[in-house]
Design a protein around this nucleic acid. Structure first.
Lengths: 148, 148
DNA sequence: GTCGCTGCAAAACGTTTGCATTTAG
DNA sequence: CTAAATGCAAACGTTTTGCAGCGAC
């Protein structure tokens, strides 16, 4: 597993350890769809390691972010959501304001213009984040309610 | 004052009232720089009406957002920040990851591409939000620390 | 045997809400 | 007089932290 190896290398380099709990959380993360919440991850990790506490999930996710394997987003209100950063090309998000569904998209032109703007302002870019909020096609017909 | 009139009209239309506390908060908001926090607003409002509670600031800000006079942003971690929505053209934000400074910019090409992406996906856009995170020119030279 | 990791509970944080009271209309 | 608005404190949901014990190396 590519990602596991990458995580392992970082842990070793920093004198950190590989535990079965950590393995359960990382595996849960890798097996999850994009934009999972900590609670969803906790439930999945507990299927393998029933005693996992939620603090551990938070701590592990922070580690994965530092390593560059996970990305976090806060769409609208609720809890922070996580997605893989490794092996997944950069993309932006379309968020439905009615049902909460999130769609990913890539628009090279936008990426390029962002680079230009940043360069012109003299910034060294670390990250960027674009969210478009609107009603998705399904929610435009019929009174579907908020689900996610 | 244009904005005050707009707020007044909405209040009347909805059977809401214009109190001196509300006036203090709205004035504080209008007199503040962009991207103020609730705490900053509270401090400023208290200069005129010392007893204001923070719940009132939150409630008033929510009202201003509903009316379309204020916009909220959550850059990175901290508290929600507010800026005027009326009379200020749409813009995006460059956030310095070192000092927290926020610069506004407009890039019509990005706006246009966002519209195209949304239309292609069948979404009806309500809002969009683009943040670019990086080191600002000042923070690139010298080890300036996080301030905001 | 070290020192990092863990679960738990408690704290922290920003925000919202319930309620008794005040106040605008 | 009615109902909206207020301040306070308590509640909320999410995330972080302190700590004593456990477990990897």
């Amino acid at each position: 597993m590519e990602v596991q190896a990458r995580v392992g290398a970082h842990l070793q380099r920093r004198g950190l350890r590989w535990s079965s709990t950590r393995d359960a959380v990382v595996s849960a993360f890798l097996a999850s769809p994009h934009h999972v919440t900590v609670d969803e991850l906790l439930a999945r990790a507990r299927r393998r390691e029933p005693g996992v506490g939620h603090a551990t999930v938070y701590r592990t996710l922070r580690l994965l972010e530092e390593i560059g394997v996970a990305l976090s987003h806060r769409f609208g209100d609720g809890p922070t959501r996580y997605e893989p950063a490794a092996g997944v090309p950069h993309h932006d998000h379309l968020v439905c304001t009615a049902c909460g569904r999130v769609v990913e998209f890539v628009e090279p032109g936008i990426e390029r213009l962002q680079e230009e703007v940043s360069r012109a302002a003299g910034y060294v870019v670390h990250a960027h984040r674009l969210e478009i909020h609107g009603r998705c096609p399904e929610c435009r017909r019929g009174a579907r309610e908020v689900t996610a």
